[in-house]
Computed example of a mutant assay.
Amino acid sequence: MTNSFDFVKGKVVAALLALNLLALLLSLGVGSGGYTYLFQVITGNADETATKIVLSYRLPRYLMAVIAGASLSASGCAMQALFRNPLAEPYVLGVASGASVGAALSVALGIETIYSRIGMAFFSALITAYVVYLIGSSSKFRDQTYAILLAGVAIASFFSGLTSVLIYFSAQSMHKVIFWLMGSFSNPFVEEVLFALPITIAGLLYLLITSWNLNALLLGDEHAAAVGINVESFRKSLIAVVALLTSTTVAISGVIGFVGIIVPHTMRILVGEEHQKLLPSTIFLSTAFMPLIDVVARISTSGELPVGAITAMLGGPFFLYLLMRRSV
């Protein structure tokens, strides 16, 4: 039995390695000049045009997709354990709606630079997560985890309406925000990668180090407390890390839905519920999944489809599959 499991595990790891290599090659090779530019850069024979396209455009874009995929997938996995709900995702804290308000506000105020958009989206998302937690963790609620979930839904609804109002009153200058709301890695900047990468690495390391705690949390607060976990402290830390990861991703790439559901559940089917295996394999799949979706977005039309639109089209049927699977 053990040998059979180890064989399956080895096949999963090999498949994930192959997928990641494929995603890297496609991300750096697909587009103007094709793989010729990539080959020239690898061999050191690239001219200025090839170097700029591969290293200044395609590579940052690939890294943004990797950051977004890993952050959203790992956050989704953590939220599903925290809320003990397999359909929970990173945006349940209202982070996406909060970030959207910040980005829309930067455009409405006429200060829409890369730094202002990232800064305002990032901080408004963090403030939103803090407000949601503050409301949900009130001593008035018997089940604070459930209260946080409902508070997130309510705050997200309010901020979505506020974003719509900002778009309505600044319609002519809001086309960038509308495209950003649908999620995109177009026009990547190295500054965005440098901003997001250290935050993402730190957040993922925290989740990986505390992955055993997620197993205990999944079995209930009483069980987690019985095995020595300070549930309240860990819940605060977990929500803070997930808010940080999600807000960072939304700030650089916009709102990309369903990634936090599709990727964790795909790996849950393959490796099981134990988070010491589930979490790293989820991150590993996401670093291939998101760049591959981005490649599809780039080649689907003469222009470019929003990445969030593609993940939504994939996520809807996947969501229904999960519902039917649980009802069987």
Rank of each mutant, 00 (worst) to 15 (best):
K9I: 02
L134M: 14
V271Y: 00
S32G: 13
D143R: 14
V295S: 05
L28A: 04
V295D: 09
M64P: 01
S139D: 15
Y133H: 14
G203T: 01
N85E: 08
P306C: 05
G228D: 10
L150W: 06
S138T: 03
S164L: 06
A108R: 05
A18E: 07
L166P: 07
L323R: 10
S116I: 06
L208T: 06
P291R: 11
M182C: 01
L24R: 09
S116P: 09
T311A: 04
G183T: 09
Y206Q: 11
L109S: 13
L105Y: 01
M64T: 07
K9Q: 13
N213H: 15
L72T: 06
F258C: 07
G102Q: 07
A50M: 09
T51K: 14
V30H: 06
S186E: 12
G29W: 02
E112R: 11
Q144V: 04
V250S: 04
F258M: 08
E48V: 12
L59N: 11
H275C: 05
L59K: 10
V250K: 05
S56M: 15
M79S: 09
A243F: 00
G203N: 10
M267N: 02
P280A: 02
Y130T: 14
A103R: 11
Y91H: 14
S286G: 13
L82C: 09
A65V: 07
L219V: 06
G303P: 03
V296G: 08
I118D: 08
H275Q: 11
S173V: 02
V12W: 11
I118Q: 13
I148M: 06
S157E: 05
G10I: 02
V131T: 12
Q172K: 15
A151H: 01
S281D: 01
K140L: 15
A288H: 00
P317D: 04
F319W: 06
G272Y: 02
L238V: 01
R326K: 15
R117D: 00
L204M: 04
A309C: 07
L28H: 01
M174A: 13
S173C: 05
Y130E: 10
A74L: 09
A15F: 01
A104Q: 01
L278M: 08
S253I: 02
A312M: 02
I310E: 10
A15V: 03
A196T: 13
E192A: 11
G254F: 03
L109T: 11
L219Y: 10
G161K: 09
Y321R: 12
L197M: 07
I269M: 15
F141W: 05
S286F: 01
S56I: 00
P188L: 00
D143Y: 07
L63D: 06
I135F: 08
A312D: 08
R117F: 00
L278H: 04
A216H: 03
V190H: 12
M324V: 14
E222T: 14
I127E: 03
G69S: 11
G31D: 05
D47P: 06
L314C: 13
G119D: 04
I199V: 13
R298L: 07
F319L: 06
A88Y: 03
A14L: 04
V250F: 03
L208D: 00
S27N: 09
E273R: 14
S4C: 13
I229H: 08
L197S: 12
L285A: 10
L149A: 14
F141E: 02
T49L: 15
V131A: 15
A70L: 08
